[in-house]
Amino acid sequence: MKLIYVFDAYCGWSYGFAPTLAEITARHPELPVEVVSGGLFTGPRAVPVREFGYIQGANAQIGERTGVTFGAAYERLIADGSFVMDSLDAARGVAVLRQAAPERAVQLAMDVQTAFYRDGLSLSAADTFARIAAAAGLDPAAVRAAFDAPAARHAAEADFRRAAELGVTAYPTLLVQDGARLAVLAVGHAEPDPIDTLLKRFGAGAGS
């Protein structure tokens, strides 16, 4: 049995889901977690944030419902509306970090979102992922080089295909898989206890 977490690093609701995800993984350390990047802002949707007039209002709602905070550096980054959120670049970085420390994929995915939403760092910059790597005790030079390699793009595109195969159309989505059985535990915002209840019904150990 394992959990599958499908998120987008540029998705505010995914950022807001981090406390719940952290709690669920702490309660169930026996469950491996597959972290998959979705492609929320790719192709024609990779445009300046001014094209998405709802972002500030959505962020306020996310903060109110989940308790996460949006940093001043992030607010400055998006203030003039010119910043482009490119989910392909973000997924490349997530894939590189995941490859560097597979067993820490969940924490690294959350670190990527913190780098953007708190620290105002672009997820299209190799230096951002090198900085995350250094803070996590990984090799920043290796991560920086891997970010620019073709394999990172291939891994990101594979993630997008995986998300589609899983039938995920909204982020974040948390699933549980046991052999051929697959069930959705949460989409968007959710609290830990209802997810835990569903996990127990699925056969996961209670808090083990």
Rank of each mutant, 00 (worst) to 15 (best):
Y10N: 15
Y15A: 03
A18W: 01
A18K: 01
T25H: 05
H28C: 07
V36D: 07
L40P: 04
P44H: 10
P44T: 13
P44V: 11
V47H: 05
V47Q: 13
V47T: 12
P48N: 02
G53C: 13
N59L: 15
N59E: 15
N59S: 14
Q61M: 12
E64M: 10
R65P: 01
V68H: 00
R76Y: 03
D80Q: 11
G81R: 01
F83K: 01
A90R: 00
R92H: 02
G93N: 07
A95C: 06
V96H: 04
Q107V: 08
V112M: 14
V112Q: 13
V112F: 08
Y117F: 15
Y117T: 07
Y117A: 11
D119S: 13
G120L: 05
S122I: 12
S122E: 14
A125S: 15
T128D: 10
F129P: 01
A130Q: 07
A133Q: 10
G137D: 02
L138T: 06
P140Y: 12
A141M: 13
A142G: 10
A142I: 03
R144N: 08
R144H: 12
A151I: 04
A152V: 10
R153N: 06
A155E: 10
A156S: 04
F160H: 04
R162I: 14
A164W: 00
L166P: 02
L166H: 02
T173Y: 11
Q177I: 10
D178F: 11
D178R: 15
R181A: 14
A183M: 09
A186E: 08
A186P: 08
V187N: 03
A190C: 08
I195L: 12
D196H: 06
